[in-house]
């Protein structure tokens, strides 16, 4: 419920909130970041109640998914020794199943266990059991949990009838639903994390998840495949259309197609994968788009060009 202001953070922002006159905005702190709901609805009180219900959902997910909460599902999983198992809630299981899928898809470039052995956890989705086959697997869902929360918040808002909405967690994980009436999409910007005023791309999106990952000057991220710091990337963005079957519950066939969770996880991988690997991944994943900002070599800082992957151009 704050007033508008510069909305660029972590290289992904909403362009020109002042132009979005009828959009209501609600904020909530969770998962060590700020979650926000932008929604168009005639009834302010009703919209606030819907946003509050979405925020309470986020708090619940944090209690289940955070490794910093001493009695969360993930803490229980992180204390398993070989041969032990823990029963987890449906959300935790689904998030782990999606994480495992993306771990396989990216050859371990996305790894919520940071090299401690994600593949050694057995996920029994039928019985909601997580079993450890080795000691010491440490899960941190920080790179996927925010996106997963954003997916579930969006489903809840739709249930409340707030279709014209955008949800984000710390601007690194954004999910645009139907655009404000009269517009063709939610205006988003991609900007240089080292120089936020340098807008690299302007997008107008709806029914799409967008994720961002980036490093500020002097920072680095560790490649879980090698344990070495990764260099050469300043930022990466991933976009994925939301599946038509939006709101579809997870079923026996598999987890819900959680677009924001997937993009959240993939941005981390895109910071590490080679240009060829990213191109190949986008090639075989219909609808997947990616933007990568390489570290500028030589030339003046902040001048490297954005590389785009996907079918848009």
């Amino acid at each position: 419920m704050r007033d508008g202001g510069p909305d660029v953070e972590g290289g992904l922002g909403i362009a020109g909130p002042r132009e979005l006159g009828d959009v209501r905005r609600f904020s909530h702190e969770a998962m060590a970041t700020s979650f926000e709901v932008y929604a168009v609805h005639p009834d302010e009180r009703y919209a606030a109640q819907a946003a509050q219900a979405a925020f309470e959902l986020t708090d619940r997910l944090e209690r289940e998914l955070s490794r910093f909460v001493p009695n969360s599902d993930i803490t229980r999983v992180n204390h398993l020794v070989a041969g032990e198992g823990a029963r987890v809630g449906p959300s935790t299981m689904e998030c782990l199943v999606i994480a495992r899928h993306l771990f396989d898809l990216t050859g371990g470039a996305f790894d919520p266990s940071i090299g401690t052995g994600l593949a050694s956890l057995e996920l029994d989705a039928d019985d909601f059991m997580v079993r450890a086959t080795i000691d010491g697997v440490q899960i941190d869902l920080g790179a996927i949990g925010k996106g997963y929360a954003v997916d579930l918040m969006a489903e809840l808002l739709e249930e409340w009838g707030l279709q014209h909405a955008l949800v984000h967690g710390g601007f690194s994980s954004v999910l645009a639903l139907e655009p404000p009436p009269g517009r063709d999409g939610w205006p988003l910007t991609l900007s240089d994390p080292g120089a936020p005023s340098r807008v690299l791309a302007r997008l107008s999106v709806c029914q799409t998840a967008l994720g961002a990952s980036g490093v500020r000057k002097g920072d680095h991220i560790v490649d879980p495949r090698t344990g070495e710091p990764a260099r050469g990337r300043k930022a990466a963005w991933v976009a994925l259309p939301r599946p038509a079957r939006a709101g579809a519950e997870a079923s026996a066939e598999g987890p819900r197609m959680a677009a924001a969770a997937v993009t959240d996880a993939l941005t981390t991988a895109m910071m590490l994968l080679s240009i060829e690997e990213i191109a190949a991944l986008c090639e075989r994943s219909p609808g997947l788009e990616a933007w990568v900002l390489p570290e500028s070599v030589g030339g003046p800082p902040g001048e490297a060009d954005l590389i785009y992957f996907g079918g848009r151009l």
């Binding site: 009180r45 009703y46 606030a48 109640q49 819907a50 509050q52 219900a53 249930e159 409340w160 009838g161």
Partner: peptide, 10 residues
């Protein structure tokens, strides 16, 4: 401070 609890109108 939180808003009163509501319900999806449908």
């Amino acid at each position: 401070v939180t808003p009163d609890l509501g319900a999806p109108d449908r």
